[in-house]
Design a protein around this nucleic acid. Structure first.
Lengths: 177, 177
DNA sequence: TATTGTTATACTCTATAACTATA
DNA sequence: TATAGTTATAGAGTATAACAATA
């Protein structure tokens, strides 16, 4: 079994391993969030909707949908379920009455807090292989990456720069310009 | 082997951030792999099948399916496409003729190598926010996590220990024991 | 005219079950 | 009897297109 090569970019085999690892961890993450949000109508994505609403980052439905990488029509169904469960509300935006602002209810905050604590436990379990310092470092780096990627793919952007560059690479064109 | 959480339930906002960050990064990962494997019949999962076959870790179809977290019936369709494209072959296992061993062809190796180099470029782009040392550290930690999770969910295991524990947490039962 | 949100339709994907062959 | 693989069917999930309200 191949083991964690130190070589960064040079060897393809090294990246092969990283790609594989990301996939494994990603699937574990999906399983974890699915299990935690099993009883939530809408599943893991509803959890992220709640999370966004709690930060007041939700904005309009379509910006939120773009941010979560799902279709805006799906967002309608998702919110229908969450509203029915009394976890969020749709409020008209005074500035632009076409928009519906997604705001979390008190009950929604309670449910979210509960789910997040469960998620914290699950996550600690998943990160058991790392010591405290490493966990902190990992959290910091992943957080920074997330903020960078969010900059790449803001709500008002329909086509992500990263994806475009990657597509260019796939076409054989050098990325960057 | 208690969980030793630093601030488990106390500050929800802290963990909330990590959960969110993982989601953002993973969505970027999914978009990336999807874009790279766009022309591959079967998409990103076919890429992982090729990767497993190249390491000779594929084993039988069902063990591979379990490892990739997909149904064995889906694996049949996936392999049908890959065989049709001449990238892998199904060979009978002399030891147990019920099994079909998945072996990569020369052409499959070529395609895989090409896709992996594209993936390496895309990944470097995604990790631009980190310096060289941090990237190495991240790769190392993710690799270690992946190996741990793989131990949790080996091919012969249909129900993952992590998932069971998490489900227990979701039910209100304390995890671990 | 363009955009937000909704609804209806069609499509894709995935899982469930039944079948064959090997053990 | 139990398991690996295949196939067919049904179900869930998703996107496409048409519509109403607002800008």
């Amino acid at each position: 079994m191949a083991v964690t090569p130190q070589q960064p970019t040079g060897s393809v085999a090294g990246n092969d391993d990283l790609f594989w690892s990301w996939g494994v961890v990603f699937r574990a993450y999906v399983r974890t969030t699915a299990a935690v949000a099993a009883d939530l109508p809408g599943g893991p994505r509803a959890l992220q909707v709640l999370s966004a609403a709690a930060r007041d980052e939700a904005g309009s439905q379509s910006t939120l949908a773009a941010r979560l990488g799902i279709d805006r029509t799906v967002m309608t169904y998702l919110l229908d379920d969450l509203v029915r469960a009394g976890l969020v509300e749709r409020r008209p935006d005074p500035a632009d009455r076409r928009n519906r602002r997604v705001v979390i209810t008190d009950r929604g905050r309670g449910v979210l807090s509960d789910l997040e604590s469960r998620l914290a436990h699950a996550e600690e379990h998943l990160l058991e292989g790392l010591d405290a310092d490493e966990r902190d470092a990992l959290r910091g780096m992943v957080g920074r990456l997330a903020r960078r990627v969010a900059d790449f793919d803001p709500a008002d952007l329909d086509t992500c720069r990263v994806v475009r560059d990657i597509a260019a690479v796939a076409e054989g064109t050098p990325p960057g310009d």
